[in-house]
């Protein structure tokens, strides 16, 4: 498929954003589709924000945070780990491919993991039709 998926990533400032920086420092290459938005903690990402991002036409949304137990705010990401799976369920119940919403944990040291997570997700989303089109 030749579509260029549009992907927005909400990354927590302390782990995942640094992990993304780490990928850069190691000059690891990954597709340019993702645009990263820095949030203090993955717990800051409200379901509304994710939904609005889809409404703008994102084909995929990523929420990346610190590993459970490592959240800079102790348990901010515990809430992420509960809210986001529920939101995925809701997407599913509405007939939207819930794989368009991706949750994972990437630490500041995991530049390698970050790059591969982005590659895999971009590839996965590329196989889906553009989100807007599926909604027509």
């Amino acid at each position: 498929m030749t579509t260029e998926p549009k992907i927005i990533g909400f990354l927590c400032n302390w782990c995942s954003y640094r992990g993304a920086d780490g990928a850069g420092m190691a000059r690891l290459k990954y597709p340019p589709n993702i645009k990263i938005i820095r949030v203090p903690c993955s717990g800051r990402v409200s379901p509304e924000l994710v939904l609005r991002t889809f409404r703008e036409g994102a084909d995929g949304v990523m929420v990346l945070g610190c590993h459970i137990g490592d959240c800079h705010y102790s348990t901010g990401n515990h809430r992420t780990a509960k809210r986001m799976p529920l939101l995925k369920k809701l997407l599913e119940y509405t007939g939207i491919d819930s794989e368009r919403l991706y949750i994972n944990w990437v630490s500041a040291a995991e530049g390698e993991k970050f790059a591969s997570v982005i590659r895999d997700f971009t590839e996965k989303i590329s196989t889906l039709p553009p989100f807007r089109e599926t909604m027509k």
Binding site: F54, L90, M135, K136
Partner: peptide, 9 residues
């Protein structure tokens, strides 16, 4: 517009 933000939220 689909999907309905109203109903999802």
């Amino acid at each position: 517009a689909n999907p309905s933000m109203y109903h999802l939220i």
